[in-house]
Design a protein around this nucleic acid. Structure first.
Lengths: 115, 115
DNA sequence: CTTGACTATAACATAAATGTCATGCTTTAT
DNA sequence: ATAAAGCATGACATTTATGTTATAGTCAAG
């Protein structure tokens, strides 16, 4: 598919898709045209990028994480960094998730009072 | 405590603390000086703000959420908005948390191979 | 073969959090 | 009382993702 279709099917703007590519998060074959061409997998990839962005990762962080499993062995230290990123974020997320849940409960109760 | 201490004990820069205040996320008594003075609770509040920011909420979002429980009754609609914010983010977080966990597993296995 | 829709790249703009700097008022210590 | 350090406000800068605009190549339809 061409870039517009990818954009429509993910909700990411064309501009953003190109940006993700420039940051090394996404690849595209090029047609004889020079047009970018994507396969179906690209959709899942873009959606993953969107989720990570929504959780407060930067594109640089995301690049580390996404590219890690495909790196050659001598780039392994970069993987360790990606791993650290995970742990830190995972801790944050878990922590906040607890808080969100308790606040959600409190909110739900409060809102019941006014319905 | 004065602003520097709050900054040191939370890791938020003085600049950021003032910014949070200007966005309605944090209050400070003022000494006769004009200096801001905070109590111990301020530390937890700043840390909460930091967590929310790290999860990709904007200060405007955070303001809605934080101020909701203290709003008078006729501002209830704002609370509903805050509640929606929660739900959306909570869904996102849960979704990504699953993915993070599975990736974490994969990572851990891969890293074991190289230790 | 021209028009319109799509693509490309590149430059400039914007929003939001944060950094930095300038200027000036306290306060504390010498 | 003067210097050093902390505070205040305000303006400008920077970063990052994204929007917007300009310019130009490609392709399908009339």
């Amino acid at each position: 598919m061409l870039i517009r279709e990818l954009s429509l099917r993910t909700g990411a703007s064309i501009r953003s898709v190109r940006h993700y590519e420039s940051k090394g998060l996404l690849e595209a074959r090029r047609l004889a045209n020079g047009y970018r061409e994507y396969d179906e997998d690209a959709i899942a990839k873009v959606k993953t990028i969107q989720l990570y962005l929504n959780l407060g990762f930067s594109t640089d962080n995301i690049a580390q994480i996404i590219n890690c499993p495909t790196l050659p062995q001598n780039d392994r230290p970069l993987c360790k960094e990606a791993y650290k990123l995970y742990k830190v974020k995972l801790d944050e997320v878990n922590k906040q998730l607890e808080i969100l849940h308790s606040i959600q409960l409190r909110l739900q109760e409060r809102m019941k009072e006014f319905e």
